[in-house]
Design a protein around this nucleic acid. Structure first.
Lengths: 188, 188
DNA sequence: CTTCTATTCTAAGCACGAGTAGAAACCGGC
DNA sequence: GCCGGTTTCTACTCGTGCTTAGAATAGAAG
């Protein structure tokens, strides 16, 4: 599964050859069928594991901050998500990069896990809103997804050479907290 | 090419069968070879067109605001990018969704176009910074990519039912301008 | 040393998708 | 109505990737 995750994260669902996976795992392709019924069931397992990974990791971070203020919790979740996506398991990376390109049947089951994960974020946003800290110009659902999107896209461009991971995390937090701009807000 | 863009946006590079494209275009697969030398060259053409589309569109928006203040320009660019990605050509959608999964040779050429597009955004961020409006906590490069990422990920979740396009645009602008939070900033 | 189970292998089958060859159809100009 | 070029078609080849069959290997237990 680790091998599959790696290949899947790199080449995507349709681009991942069973033989590539086998090579990474240092076995012959048919050996895979001892553990999985089919290519698809292997991939499904990997992708599921990936989102569950992210869910568990972020939940854990939040559990440690169960009585912190909503903003702190939200920013901690951002840090958690970014760490998993950029440094953590290639399982999560595989989920992120393939969520859009899975066949219908897998996608349906995978969607449940994603909804579960999404709930965590909705909850966070709700907490912030309940504390009266959410700006009213924002559509909460859109804001949530834009934030998750900013993080999910990060694997596409991030590398240690572009910017230190800590910088990315700090920037993401700052962006969410206070936006790009300084004093005057030049909205329209 | 339009058919190819549509299929490509939906199924990704490796998942796009020439026969699918032909079907959408209402021809038989070999007819494609009258216009393109190979599957890859077709896809390359589509993906190129896609990023050029986005570039041109955003450049045009900015040209109309050539003497506006930097913030207005940046926010207009955000609106432009989102409109192209969510409503506009499936060409751009195809580029966005496949940038990560193209074979090396295409990717190299495609990368140039992307760099060109990225320059526009760097320029915008620089303008903002030059006006002294950029918060210093931010790593500009990371901030730029996070913002682009938020928008590029939008096609993964957005649909007219989730939120009106105008809401998404407004939310994205507001997020970039002033972040999620209201009065107190609960950073750490 | 033998036997049983777990695991992996080699060899082959089968389907499918890219690409080619060459024939047909279409169409504007004569 | 015929001719030229353009465009698309049908029929085929060839490689590749998933999957199955059945044999081989590796240990553990007796």
């Amino acid at each position: 599964m680790e091998a599959a995750a790696e290949v899947l994260a790199r080449k995507g669902f349709a681009g991942s050859r069973l033989s590539d996976i086998a090579e990474v795992a240092e076995v012959q392709a048919p050996a895979i069928y001892y553990y999985f019924q089919s290519r698809e069931s292997l991939i499904e397992a990997v992708v599921m594991e990936g989102t569950r990974n992210a869910t568990i990791h972020v939940e854990q971070v939040l559990a440690e901050l169960s009585d912190a203020d909503p903003v702190t919790r939200l920013l901690a979740a951002i840090e958690g998500h970014l760490r998993v996506a950029l440094q953590g398991s290639s399982f999560t990376l595989a989920s992120i990069r393939n969520s859009g390109q899975l066949p219908e049947d897998i996608r349906a089951r995978q969607h449940n896990e994603e909804v579960k994960y999404g709930r965590i974020w909705r909850e966070l946003v709700n907490e912030v809103a309940a504390a009266g800290l959410l700006r009213e110009e924002l559509n909460p659902a859109a804001a949530q997804m834009l934030i998750i999107g900013a993080m999910n896209w990060a694997p596409e461009w991030w590398g240690p050479k572009v910017a230190p991971l800590e910088d990315v995390i700090a920037t993401a937090k700052a962006l969410v907290a206070g936006g790009l701009l300084n004093a005057e807000k030049g909205q329209r």
